[in-house]
Design a protein around this nucleic acid. Structure first.
Lengths: 206, 206, 206, 206
DNA sequence: TATGAATGAGGATTCATTCAT
DNA sequence: CATGAATGAATCCTCATTCAT
């Protein structure tokens, strides 16, 4: 996650401006969508002149990148405790713990998440998401490896792939589409689904 | 799937031109990506003047929409036989049948699928996908209802939602990202995952 | 001298537009100078929209390049007969002939010449001038070689360099600065100077 | 040469800052060329903030003008001794003396000369050069007047014009283009050319 | 119908300059 | 004096769209 800002803002004013730009960008992304999120609109929304933007970001892409990275970084930070806590727990509890943390983290950023997932081309998101997915993937892999006796099948990589993909989708769509499903049910279902992917007897695992 | 073309083309020539435009659009979308798919480029690629495009489509969006709808329609058509065939079969066999058909349908359109999924804002896709998802959702719902005795839980809607979401994601990402997973394994895993979502004892269900 | 226009204009209208753009560019170059010759200004001056410019020229540079090349090409064409005619003549007569033709050619394009020489960075001009200078240089070289017996010194390359440089400067500055010197005197002086560079006895050479 | 600085810097510190700005400007002009020589770049190169520049120069043009004037002034200073020394000498020796001094003066500033001559619009240079040319022109005029008996023709103004123009061009292009001509040969040739312009028998004049 | 020249608002970005601190 | 954030007009250029032919 490189620093995409043009210069390290040392003064409080600068940092505040960067924040203003980013939240303006987020708002514009939410309301106008990526293709119509022009730099001028972002500048106006941030209460800045077009030129000022470029004192803080080298180009338009850097703004979107930074917004995405912030979401990613915040998400990673938000679920970190649950990942640590999950370490010592049995798979079912661990899964549910991390899922709940992830869900709440995403819910707290629902607007931005929607702007990014639904309005920014997928390709841009993937790069930002890559690191989170790698992290989560690693954890999943280790949990599976630690319980290899109960696995349905030997190929841990394969199970990891499936779990990461489906979990991401279910979480994101649950938060964005808000289906008529109670949170508790959603968490229970998803936990069960994840465990079923990997383990012979998901009921016993918990 | 509304008719977005300006007028119903009655003559063969017109229909051929529409096709030329759409396949030109597809090619441009695949090679240049959505933001660089300008109408002029599409017109050139179709061997037409920029003005002529507007005899067939009211605006740029209509072209992309129609392309998306064609993909959707083709996909629906491609899996239709498997859906019919699956009707009389037990859940495991039915699931696998439809999955295999879906996978092959998507693989045959991989380039376009990639252009659409990864480069066109999600929001546009959702509309096009809506009908397919509704179809598939209906089938899933009925299968579950028909086997209600073996269900893990009573809420069929909930299970349907989960199944549709995760299936879509797994299929699309498998086709686009080409993970190092054999097709047979992918189909077996996904089938098992789907069944686990709904049924108490996925092994017995087949 | 490559065709820098975007597409070969087949219709009279197109060709007329190209001309309008070029003469507008020339006018703007004359009045505003190179750095202030914006594409929008040129378009306005040509009675066109900014976008139309780019139907005929790929970018701003191409316009200036084409203007320069036209001047160069016209100049080369204008002095071509004198170069041919000079071939069979003794050095003094040949020199004067070509000088007179060059002078008149430049005088007929005085405004454009001024815009280019005084307002466009030298570096851009040099490229355009290169071919003319090479042509003229070749002729000078051959004339000197053909009269090697009367040369002041053996190094024909050296004399050619001096002649080309000083002739260009004297012609251009005479036309642009319009010093209080009669044309006949200017031609006589310059002819004499050129001959003096190369020949032992410039008076006899004629 | 008007004082284009905003205020006469009385303090040593100010004078040093002016110098820093000018040499930064020179460096930027040499490396980036005129159009890319932005004030911000110059300020950075000078180790100043953009705002500070305007404490010393009213605008960008003033900086370039001052740089040009410094080149001019330095050049004038560098050839001044040779001009004095030449006063008492016969034309050939005088010419050669001044030519050699001029050549070396220009060679010692080759980079800046190139940036100015080839990248700054001619019109700006002419103003700066005007005074030097006037100086040199005066000297030439007086030398010719002092030797009027040997002149080829009566019009001293005319000869002066020709000499100044061609000398400037030959010197500048020799320094910048570095043709494959030995310095001694260049000086001999140019001296001879200059004398030929004015005198009936250039050989005898020396 | 087809053409393709023309449009013109809008895009990202630069930069000489100002001014509150 | 110095700073550097802020300005905003201006730059080149694109592109969906129109319309006279």
């Amino acid at each position: 996650m490189p620093d995409t800002r043009r210069r390290t803002p040392r003064q409080a004013r600068s940092r505040a401006t960067v924040k203003r730009i980013l939240s303006a960008g987020t708002r514009v992304l939410e309301t106008q969508g990526y293709p119509d999120a022009s730099t001028n609109r972002i500048a106006t929304e941030a209460g800045l002149s077009p030129g000022s933007l470029y004192q803080y970001f080298p180009d338009k892409e850097a703004i979107v990148t930074e917004i995405t990275h912030r979401l990613t970084r915040d998400f990673a930070a938000a679920i970190a405790p649950s990942l640590r806590q999950a370490a010592g727990q049995p798979p079912a509890a661990a899964t549910r713990l991390v899922l709940a943390a992830s869900l709440h983290a995403l819910q707290s950023q629902r607007d931005l998440l929607g702007a990014l997932v639904d309005r920014v081309p997928n390709i841009e998101q993937q790069q930002a998401l890559a690191s989170v997915r790698r992290n989560v993937g690693d954890v999943v892999y280790h949990v599976l490896a630690a319980n290899s006796a109960q696995l349905r099948q030997a190929d841990i990589e394969r199970a990891t792939w499936t779990i990461v993909e489906l979990t991401q989708q279910l979480l994101v769509r649950y938060v964005l589409d808000q289906p008529a499903i109670a949170e508790q049910d959603f968490l229970a279902d998803t936990t069960h689904t994840i465990l079923s992917v990997a383990f012979r007897d998901p009921q016993r695992i918990g």
